[in-house]
Simulated assay, not measured.
Amino acid sequence: MKDTANKTASVYRMVMKDHVCPYGLKTVDLLKREGFAIDDHHLETREQTDAFKAKHDVKTTPQTFINGRRIGGYDDVREYFGKKPIEKDEDATSYQPVIAIFAVTALLGLGLSWFSYGELLTVAAAEWFVSLSMCVLAIQKLQDIRSFSTMFLNYDLLARRWVPYGFVYPFGEALAGILMTAHVLPIISVPVSLFIGGIGAFSVFKAVYIDKRELKCACVGGNSNVPLGFVSLTENIFMIGMGLWMGARALGWIVI
Rank of each mutant, 00 (worst) to 15 (best):
M1Q: 12
D3A: 07
T4I: 09
T4A: 04
A5V: 02
N6Y: 10
K7C: 08
T8I: 12
S10H: 03
R13Q: 02
M16Y: 09
H19N: 01
H19T: 03
Y23W: 11
Y23A: 06
G24E: 01
L25P: 07
T27C: 09
D29S: 07
L30M: 02
K32Y: 01
E34K: 14
E34P: 01
A37F: 04
A37K: 08
H41L: 11
L43C: 10
E47H: 00
A51F: 00
F52D: 10
D57H: 14
D57E: 11
T60C: 08
T61V: 13
P62W: 04
Q63S: 03
I66W: 10
I66L: 06
R70L: 06
G72H: 06
G72E: 02
G73R: 01
V77P: 05
V77E: 03
F81Y: 04
K83T: 01
K83E: 02
K84L: 13
K84P: 04
D91I: 03
T93Q: 13
S94N: 05
S94I: 11
Q96L: 15
V98M: 13
A100T: 10
G109S: 05
G109P: 04
L112K: 03
S113V: 01
S113T: 09
G118P: 08
V123R: 05
A124N: 13
A124D: 14
F129R: 10
F129A: 08
V130M: 11
L132K: 07
L132I: 15
L132T: 12
L132W: 00
S133T: 15
M134P: 00
L137T: 09
L137Q: 09
A138F: 02
A138L: 05
I139A: 13
Q140N: 04
K141H: 02
L142P: 02
Q143C: 10
I145K: 08
S147E: 13
F148P: 03
S149C: 00
F152C: 09
F152G: 03
D156N: 11
D156K: 02
A159V: 08
W162T: 05
P164C: 08
Y165M: 11
Y165S: 00
V168G: 05
V168L: 15
F171Q: 11
L175N: 01
A176Q: 01
G177V: 04
I178M: 07
M180Y: 06
A182I: 02
L185D: 05
P186Q: 01
P186K: 11
V190I: 04
V192D: 03
I196S: 00
I196H: 08
G200Y: 12
K206T: 12
Y209D: 11
I210N: 08
I210Y: 13
I210K: 12
R213W: 11
R213K: 15
E214T: 15
C219F: 12
V220M: 12
G221V: 05
G222F: 11
S224R: 07
S224Y: 02
S224L: 08
S232E: 14
T234S: 14
E235A: 15
N236T: 00
M239P: 00
M242S: 07
W245E: 07
G247K: 09
A248G: 03
L251R: 07
I254P: 03
I256N: 07
I256T: 09
